[in-house]
Structure formats: C-alpha cells, structure tokens
Amino acid sequence: MKRLTLSAVLFAIALAVCANKTEYMMRPTADGYLFFIMPFSIPSEEKGVKPLTADITIPPNVLTADMRITVMTKEEAGIDSVRISNRDTAVTYPAKILYAEKRKKGWKYRIELTLPYETVTYIYSYPTPYTIGIIDGESIRASYSPAQHTWDKRRGEMEELFYVVEINKNNRKERK
C-alpha cells in the first residue's frame, strides 16, 4: 500500500512538472503556420487570489499576437485594458471581454487583446519576469507575475519557439 501511495505521489509530481512545461501547437494554414501556446498560469501578487490563465496565438503573418486571459474576480469588474510591465517598460493594450460568467464565489472573465509580435519577443527576452495588470477603468484591479525560477525556464522555452517561428517565416518567404 505504501509503495502504491509513493508511486501515485511521484507520478502526480511528474504530471505537474509536465503540465508546467510550455506546450505549443503548430498548424498549417493557407497563409503560413499558425502557432498556439497552450494555456499557462501566472500567480497573483496578492495572497488568496486565484492565478490567471493565459494563452497566446501567433497568426501566420507573425506581425501580431493574440493573448487570451481568464481571470477570476470576487466582484463584478469592467475590465477594459491590460498593462504589461517589467523593470524597464510598461505598455497598456485595450482588452475585449469575450464573456463574463457568474460563479459561486465571484466572476470569471475571459478577455482578449492583440499586441505586436515584437512586444511578445521583447517581454520574453527580458531576464526579470513581467507583471500583468488587469485594468478596470482607472485602476489596476489585480496584478499577476510569474516566479523568477518559472520565468527562467519559460523564457528559454519561448526563445526556442520564437526561433521555430522565425525559421518557418523565412522558409515561407523563400518558397514565394
């Protein structure tokens, strides 16, 4: 029984580690390859606040990136923009609410924003983690930021992905 419990715990840890890895899908379209970074979570800077979940889609033109974020709030919010900042830069982009759902303990919001692809590559080239601020009117309702060790790992994985994106973009140009 002890062995079974130990095995179960070890595999649960293995699965959790796998789940934390940056996964992406690459799909051919008529205009080139579409890249999709599977949902990842970013912890809140405040205690007791659920982490946000985000995913990123890089369309074939590789000029922009669509970020979709799921955020839970205790009270109803009028989210209208998202602020992404690190020690050097802070940029704010308008966000559109895809849907809002009333949950047992608060609200679930799904929002989307489009940012330049270069901004995404810049953010992930920076050694310190970024902070995502969910803006409701004039104020930041909640802030989320990955831990440094998670950031170091994710940054490396994302740089690999950007390299793959670049290679496929160049291959497409050559074929034309």
Partner: peptide
C-alpha cells in the same frame, strides 16, 4: 470554442496525457 470566441470551427483535436491510468488530463 467559447474560450477563443470561435463561431466557425475548422477542426478539433484532442490531446490526452496520462500516467499509469492514475492521472489523466484531456484537452
């Protein structure tokens, strides 16, 4: 589809990750 605001579906994939049949995640 709701999570991305998709109204026209082109295709659907299913991704399954599991260990020993004890833990399974399907996406």
């Amino acid at each position: 589809a709701k999570d991305a605001g998709i109204t026209k579906i082109s295709h659907v994939d299913s991704k399954t990750t599991g260990v020993l049949g004890l833990f399974t995640i399907t996406k």
